[in-house]
Write a protein that binds this DNA or RNA. Sequence first.
DNA 1: CTCTGGCTATAACGCTCGTCATAGTCTAGC
DNA 2: GCTAGACTATGACGAGCGTTATAGCCAGAG
Lengths: 205, 205
Amino acid sequence: MVRSGPPSRERIVAGAADLISRRGLNATSIRELAKHAQAPLGSTYHYFPDGKQQLATEAVRYAGAAVERLLRRELDAGPVAGLRAFLEMWRGIVVASDFRAGCPVLAVSVEEPPPGDELPPALIAAAEAFQDWERLLAGSLRAHGADPERAPELATLVVASVEGAIAMCRARRDMGPLDRVAHRLEALIETELAAQARQAAQGRQ
Amino acid sequence: MVRSGPPSRERIVAGAADLISRRGLNATSIRELAKHAQAPLGSTYHYFPDGKQQLATEAVRYAGAAVERLLRRELDAGPVAGLRAFLEMWRGIVVASDFRAGCPVLAVSVEEPPPGDELPPALIAAAEAFQDWERLLAGSLRAHGADPERAPELATLVVASVEGAIAMCRARRDMGPLDRVAHRLEALIETELAAQARQAAQGRQ
DNA sequence: CTCTGGCTATAACGCTCGTCATAGTCTAGC
DNA sequence: GCTAGACTATGACGAGCGTTATAGCCAGAG
C-alpha cells in the first residue's frame, strides 16, 4: 500500500526544529514535540522508531536543508544578495517569535554529547549543515572575485557571526547586535570584492 | 558571626558555569550541579535559597566577570592583543574539554524564557555580560583610532563571531572555524587601525 | 562543658521524562 | 462487507526532576 505520508510526519519534523531552536535539545521532551505539532505521542514513535535522537537528527537536517536551499537560490545574485537573504531569514524568525526562537543547528551544537565514544547523529548533522552553508558562501565569494584564501575565512566569519548575533539578540531582546553585524559584514564583502576587481583591472591594463 | 564563606560556595558557582556551558541551562539539574562541584545537594539550597535560577544567574555573572577581567587586563596592550587573549581563552576551554564545553553565557542566551512576562534574571545577566564585553572592545578600538561609528559594530562582530565559532567548533570537533574567524578578525582590526592612522597622519600633514 | 548556628544528610512531595506494549480505530484494496 | 496494515489512544515502567522539611553533625563562642 503506497500512501503518500500524511502531513503529520513533516509537520512533526518542522515543529521539532522550531521547538528545539527555542528550548534546546535536551530540554525539549518528546511529549512537548508531539503537542507542538498537534500530533499524538504515539505517532512520534511510529514515524521515528529510534526515538528522540532520530527526530532531532531529522529536524536539524530539515532546518539545514531549508537554509541551504535559500542560499543556493539567493547567492545567484551575488554574495551580498545571499548574505542579505540569509540575514533577513534569521531576522524574521527571531522577530516573529518575539526573540524566543533562534537557530536549531546552533541549539544542537552547544549540547554536550553523551559520555560514550561515538557522536550523536544530530550533532553530526549540525556540523554538516554549518559546513554546507560555509561552502556555498565561500564558493560564491570565490566566483565573484574574492581572494581564494580569504573566501573560506569570510564564509566562516559570516556564519559564525550571524549565529552568535542571533543568540545575543535573544538575550537582549533587541535586534541591535544582528543589525550591527549585518552592516559590517556587508561592507566587508563589498570591499573584498571591490579590491579584487580593482586588482584584476590593474593586471589587465 | 562573620565567617568568610567556605570554599564551597564559589566552587559551586564555578562548577555551575562549567556544567551549564556544556549541557545548557534547562538540561542541567541541580543534583548534577551539586555533584559536579562535589557539594551536597542540601548545600546548594543553603547557599542559593532561590534555587536553580539564582545559581544560574550567579554562574552567568561569574563567567561574564571573569571574561571582563581578562579583557580589561589584556586590552591595555591594544585591541589586537585583547582579541588574541579573548580567543586564546576560549580556545583553551574548548580544547581542554575535548569540545564538550563552550560559553555559559551563550548557553543561557539560547534558551526560551518561561511564558510569563518578566525575564529570568539569568538571561538578563547574559545580556549584560555580552554588552560589557562589547563595550570594552569598542572602547579600546576607539581609543586606538578606530572610526567611532565602526568601533561598536566591530566589537559586536568580534563577540558574535567568536561565540558562533565556538559552537561550530564543538559541532565539528575541530578548531578550524575559530582559527579562521581569528585570522580574519585580526586582519580586520589591524587594517581598521592602520586606515585611521593613515588618515590621521594625512590630516596632520 | 554547653550551646548556638552554619552546614549536611536523608527522605519525601508531585511531577515529568524516554520508551515500550497493547489494544484499539480507521481507511484502502479486494 | 472484510481484511490488512497504517495510524492512534492509553497506560505503564523505572528514573530523574525542583523543591521542601526535618533531623543531625560539628566547629567555635561563652
